[in-house]
C-alpha cells in the first residue's frame, strides 16, 4: 500500500504504475455525467471548486442532513467511469488533474491524457459505498446542487486513507486493456 497525499504532483503520479494499491489522503471533488457535459460545453465551475492539480472522483453519493443541519455522507462508492470517456481528456488537460477516481476503467483518450499530463486513473471498489464513506472525514461543501441534483452535484470531500488501485498509469499502461485482451484470447479457446 502506497500513501498518496497533497501536494499531488506530476512527479508523484509518474512514480505510480499499474497494479499499485494506494491510500489517498486529501481533498476530492466529485464530478460525474452532468459536470463533465457542463465542462465540455464550455461551462464554468464555481470559484470554490479548485480542480488544479487535484483529484476528481466519479461518484454520486448519498448525503443527508443530520439534526444540526450538517451534511453527512452515508454512502459514497464510485460510479462507472467510461461514460466520461468523451470528456475526461479535456478536463485532465484544462485543470492539470492528477488523479481520476472511478470504476470500470477508461479508454484510449484518457490513457493518452494521463500520459501527456502526468495523471493516473485510480480504480476504487465499485459498490463498496460504506467502506469508502467511512474514509470521508468531512463533507466540506456542495456546489451546483440546484442545477444538477444531489447525485450529480459537485461534493467536496476530505478523505483519509481512501483505498484505490492504479489501473491506468501515466506511462501508457492500462490494466483494463490487458485484462480485456487476455480474456478475449482465453474465451476463444472455449468456443
Amino acid at each position: 500500500m502506497l500513501k498518496l497525499s497533497p501536494p499531488f504532483t506530476a512527479e508523484k503520479m509518474r512514480a505510480l504504475k499499474v497494479g499499485d494499491e494506494v491510500l489517498i489522503t486529501g481533498t476530492l471533488f466529485t464530478g460525474r455525467d452532468a459536470v463533465h457535459k457542463h465542462l465540455h460545453e464550455g461551462g464554468k465551475l464555481p470559484p470554490q471548486v479548485n480542480l488544479q492539480n487535484g483529484m476528481l472522483y466519479h461518484c454520486g453519493p448519498v448525503v443527508i442532513k443530520d439534526d444540526q443541519g450538517r451534511w453527512k455522507c452515508v454512502a459514497a462508492g464510485p460510479t462507472t467511469s467510461i461514460r466520461e470517456e468523451p470528456y475526461q481528456w479535456q478536463v485532465i488537460r484544462d485543470y492539470n488533474l492528477r488523479g481520476v477516481i472511478g470504476k470500470g476503467g477508461m479508454g484510449d483518450k484518457t490513457l493518452a491524457a494521463c500520459k501527456e499530463h502526468g495523471c493516473v486513473y485510480l480504480h476504487a471498489i465499485g459498490g463498496a459505498a460504506q467502506v469508502l464513506a467511512e474514509r470521508i472525514k468531512r463533507v466540506c461543501g456542495v456546489y451546483m446542487m440546484e442545477e444538477f441534483g444531489a447525485p450529480e452535484a459537485i461534493w467536496e470531500f476530505e478523505v483519509e486513507d481512501f483505498p484505490a488501485v492504479v489501473t491506468i498509469d501515466s506511462h501508457g499502461n492500462s490494466l483494463h486493456k490487458d485484462v480485456f485482451a487476455a480474456s478475449q484470447a482465453e474465451l476463444a479457446k472455449h468456443l
Binding site: C59, G60, P61, V62, V74, A75, A76, G77, T79, G126, G127, A128, A129, Q130, A133
Partner: peptide
C-alpha cells in the same frame, strides 16, 4: 450501520 451497501 443500517446504511446502503451501494450508493446507487
Amino acid at each position: 450501520k443500517s446504511q446502503p451497501i451501494c450508493q446507487d
